[in-house]
Amino acid sequence: MQNVHDVLTTEEGQRAFAHWRLAGLDRLECELEAQLSCALMPPARLHEAVRYAVFGGGKRLRPLLCQASGVALGADRQALDTVGAAVEMVHISSLVYDDLPAMDDDSLRHGRPSVHIQFDEATAILAGSALLTQAFMTLRHTPIPPARQALLMETLARAAGPDGLCGGQMLDLDSLGSVIGLPVLNLMYQMKTGALIRAAVRMGALCAEPSDADLEALDRYATAIGLAFQVVDDILDVTQDSATLGKTAGKDAQDHKPTYVSVFGLDPSRRLARLLNEQAHAALAGFDARATYLRELADQIVNRLH
């Protein structure tokens, strides 16, 4: 049984985390606002679509991971805010593309019409491209030495390209209607979902001066939570409704898409999510209390099941 001191310590920690999270989200919104063009600037329809996509809700998990990783290593807060905004732009870009009829063909995102539904397909494609390019413009403004800016750009480009998001989406499209094993499923989601999560964690660390050991541990943490995030998403897709999810529920099964639930089963997927969370915590064993926010974010990912 927990004693009173343990309970108070836990409650205090949760309050501290909630305060840190809200403050970080507020700064992120300000940074995104500063980096994106006004909706009234020409071409107004494109800027309106970009802002519709960016400010339409979402968990903002990746920029929070970037900030938490940087906090663990003592990085500059403004650098983390700028890098987090760039990572979020790439993530939002991928969602705009993912919803297109040629991809997942989903009309709902964050509880409202997808960009191509609210505007049109051509505008959605251009908005996704605009966000992707703006992300790298944003990184150029990071207040760190140019050589480290270049390393951030390389990290983000790798996560977004054929070894990351693009490659994972291709594997996803190729797998529709197919029966695949767990190794292929893991690879697909390590690229499509995990690559940008790993990049967010690594880029936060790169805003400081991490050791090779720090980066290796953070990579193991990020790999675990990247897969955990996807496992939980697959579980929620079959256990929650569209109103709760903010996107079309049950669409994976409808499209005959392989998921952790379809390949592994519902209860084994739940156990896998918990195991991955344990692995994430184990990866942070060498860090002190400054990695508390990373631990809390890992727990939040898996606690979406409750």
Rank of each mutant, 00 (worst) to 15 (best):
G57W: 13
L294I: 00
S93P: 00
D99G: 01
E48P: 02
P145W: 02
V115P: 07
L61T: 08
L65Q: 05
F264M: 04
Q279W: 07
L100G: 02
L8R: 08
A208E: 09
L22I: 10
D267G: 00
P42T: 07
V83T: 12
L40P: 00
T239G: 06
M153G: 15
L46M: 07
H281Y: 08
A200Q: 05
Q230D: 11
G181C: 10
V179F: 05
H141R: 14
D26R: 15
A291K: 03
T223S: 15
R202V: 12
C66A: 15
A23G: 03
M170G: 07
H116I: 08
L215R: 01
I235F: 01
D163G: 15
A79D: 01
L276E: 13
L40W: 11
R271T: 03
T10Q: 12
M103G: 06
G168P: 12
P113R: 14
L61M: 12
G265H: 01
A253Q: 14
D212W: 08
H116Q: 12
V263N: 01
F287I: 00
A122P: 04
D106A: 11
E31W: 05
P113L: 12
S114D: 10
L126C: 15
R109L: 07
M203G: 04
M203D: 05
M203W: 05
T239V: 09
